[in-house]
């Protein structure tokens, strides 16, 4: 009895959080016109969440492409299809691995930083100070970070995919000896710009960027004003973002297929 009550409580807390995050999104949307007064802050945040995440994204993208090519080469060789390694690497990265891994890395690198930063700003009264200086913290702090996440995610995903394919090329062509011409020609013949690249790199990335940014700013803004509260909020950003990304990926794949 008590176990089921506890389970219901956890579920109801999750539902309440989702509802509150939805209302928070509406507040963000309402404040966007006012936040356009702070273009410099928005550029600064795109730099912080986007450009500063480039190194980790590029390194991870390279290794994902390399390991993917290595695995696929050995499996495809069994069926005599090693020449299409590049194609399968590209499709896997564009459709799934690119947007999903980018979003997971983005949540870990930028999402946690956003949550911790906003949470600490609340703990140290910086948000209250802004309010008292007649500056809406929602417009000045929250919206620029939210928009920056939306802008940065597809760009980071594009870089991740390019690095992944470069990594695949390194392994397949330079190491395992697949013909360079067939690697590229098979890929360009099969990969569809609209179906594979637009759906994965653009639409999925935008959706993931929206969800991760929303979770990050929401958790930071509503974090209790204690060190423990900020720590929990940061953890919740990673956990909730990871679950949301994978769930959303499955749903989007159903719709986009």
């Amino acid at each position: 009895m008590s176990t089921s009550t506890g389970r219901y409580q956890i579920i109801s807390q999750w539902l309440i959080q989702i509802g509150e995050a939805g209302l928070f999104l509406l507040r963000i949307l309402a404040v966007i016109p006012r936040s356009l007064r702070y273009p410099r802050e928005m550029v600064r945040q795109v730099w912080f969440v986007g450009a500063m995440s480039l190194i980790i994204l590029m390194v991870c993208g390279l290794f994902v492409g390399m390991v993917l090519a290595l695995q696929l080469y050995h499996v495809l060789s069994i069926f005599g299809g090693a020449a299409v390694t590049g194609t399968v690497v590209a499709i896997s990265i564009y459709r799934e691995l690119g947007p999903v891994v980018t979003a997971l890395l983005f949540a870990g690198r930028a999402g946690t930083a956003i949550t911790a930063e906003i949470g600490l700003m609340r703990t140290t009264d910086q948000l209250a100070a802004m309010e008292l200086m007649a500056v809406d913290p929602l417009a000045y702090v929250v919206v620029p970070r939210f928009i920056a996440g939306l802008v940065a995610m597809p760009l980071l995903c594009g870089v991740f995919c390019a690095q992944g394919i470069l990594g695949g090329h390194l392994v397949a062509v330079s190491w395992l000896g697949i013909d360079n011409g067939s690697f590229w020609s098979n890929m360009t013949a099969t990969v569809d710009v609209w179906k594979d690249i637009m759906d994965g790199v653009v639409w999925k990335s935008l959706a993931f960027g929206l969800v991760v940014s929303l979770i990050a700013v929401f958790q930071g803004y509503t974090a209790p004003s204690t060190s423990e509260g900020v720590a929990y909020a940061t953890t919740r950003t990673v956990v909730a973002s990871s679950i949301a990304i994978l769930l959303l990926d499955f749903m989007l794949t159903i719709f986009l297929m």
Partner: peptide
């Protein structure tokens, strides 16, 4: 309220400077 706050100065106990 925001217009009124522009005419009020507030010094926090912990100063609340933007770090």
């Amino acid at each position: 309220l925001y217009t009124l706050r522009e005419r009020i100065g507030y010094m926090f106990q912990n100063s609340a400077l933007l770090t």
